[in-house]
Design a protein around this nucleic acid. Structure first.
Lengths: 238, 238
DNA sequence: CGGTTCCATGACGACCCTGTCACTGACCCG
DNA sequence: CGGGTCAGTGACAGGGTCGTCATGGAACCG
């Protein structure tokens, strides 16, 4: 069973996704539900405010480009109702600088489209962790003697720091989070790469190859390939 | 985990923010809450006095330019209730000299709009520290052999003083406060620069470059760039 | 009102990351 | 045992990011 750090909480995280592209909103909601969260979607600013009132989300994903009203108007509406709900904004890649200025003040964060699903979930978890008071504890993933600190982006094998590129980090995080489950290459592509990535070559194998050299070299291998299926990170089964 | 010097206190700091621009009031409240403080806002002088009575804040952020009553009237109201609550004033850039005269008597302080949020938080922390009796201890940030005294603005590397410009100091303070977390350039821009700064060029890289020359030159590097993510100040992990 | 310091902007070069291709090797099945 | 499929790795090129310099302007100070 995948690693769900939220299963022990009394109530699941409540997420509101606001995006006028149903494709995107559903994608995010689906992934969140798979993590055990409670997710609803809205396609317009008006709908978003209605949903927020009835659903009282713990966190919001808000596309700044909405058909009816400006995303900032929705934000004001959310904030006007008193609750200081944290927000992760979505912006187009070509968004002007003044539109994304100030988005990370407070505890909020933002992401440019197209994003990778794992990246978005990681940001949501980080924002949530921080919004739960100042004494938030770091999130450290651990498999065998391999550790990953998601906040400092520090990865160590047997205590020795390893430096990873962004893609390598993302892929390894996904494998570690789901460890000891086996993930197919399709899953990895869908979660780690941007959602509009069309490449169907051997990118995954390539990055895994690099990861092995950096992480498994000279140690007991933790990255295993399951032929015909995909990859998994775990200690040799005993 | 970021440096939160308040987590061990019995009760969190109680902050009242008085500003007629909701954007500003919310901004300050959000950042304060992110630091673990308890923050409420007021948009008018009347509301401010009401809030102060019920909330009994430890410290107040007060815009001198209010729609209904003069900021000084609010101040008198606050002080009339006996408690000697410290205040950090906000003034417009074009405020006349006589209006800001005497504002820093007592333990108070003031800031001109637009300010940077880190600057405001630093002043609030400083005023709070001093208001807790005369024997306030200095706040010294420390990362490896790099130290920063926030009150004297003294920065030393391996005991040797380094002189920094205001922007350099502010950026370094932000990185040191959050060390060993990695901060994105967007976060740095949002926190260190004034809140209406629209700059989209390589200011951050430039200032970091200057900081490196002044701080890391000839030493073990403490400022690291995390490609594709941002910057971090920390000792090489071991 | 001159000089100096500090800061923002643009340009440019260097480096790193990434995806594709090509080739080799490993594994599976007949 | 041999062919075919799948995985691993090296090489390469395009694109993006980062660091630095040079320039001009604003603020500050004497």
């Amino acid at each position: 069973m995948p690693h769900h750090e939220d299963v022990n909480k009394k109530s699941p995280v409540r997420l509101l996704v606001v995006d006028d592209e149903p494709h995107i909103a559903d994608l995010v909601a689906t992934v969140a539900r798979y993590e055990g969260w409670n997710a609803v979607t809205a396609g317009t600013g008006e709908e978003a405010l209605r949903q927020a009132a009835g659903f009282s989300p713990d966190i919001v994903v808000l596309d700044l480009m909405l058909p009816d009203v400006d995303g900032f108007t929705v934000l004001d509406g959310l904030r006007a109702s008193g609750a200081m709900v944290p927000v992760v904004f979505l912006t187009a890649k070509d968004a002007t600088a003044d539109r994304i200025a100030g988005l990370t003040r407070g505890g909020d964060d933002y992401l440019v489209k197209p994003f990778s699903v794992e990246e978005l979930m990681a940001r949501l978890r980080a924002v949530l962790r921080r919004s739960n008071g100042p004494a938030w504890k770091r999130s450290v993933l651990e498999v065998g003697d391999l550790t990953m600190d998601e906040d400092t982006r520090e990865v160590k094998r047997a205590g020795v720091p390893v430096s990873l590129t962004p893609t390598e980090f993302e892929l390894l995080r996904y494998l570690m989070r789901r460890s000891p489950a086996v993930l197919t290459k399709a899953q990895i592509l869908d979660h780690v790469w941007e959602y509009d990535f069309g490449g169907r070559s051997n990118v995954v194998e390539l990055v895994v190859s690099h990861l092995r050299r950096k992480i498994d070299d000279g140690h007991e291998p933790l990255i295993h390939t399951v032929r015909g299926v995909g990859y998994v990170v775990r200690r040799a089964t005993g």
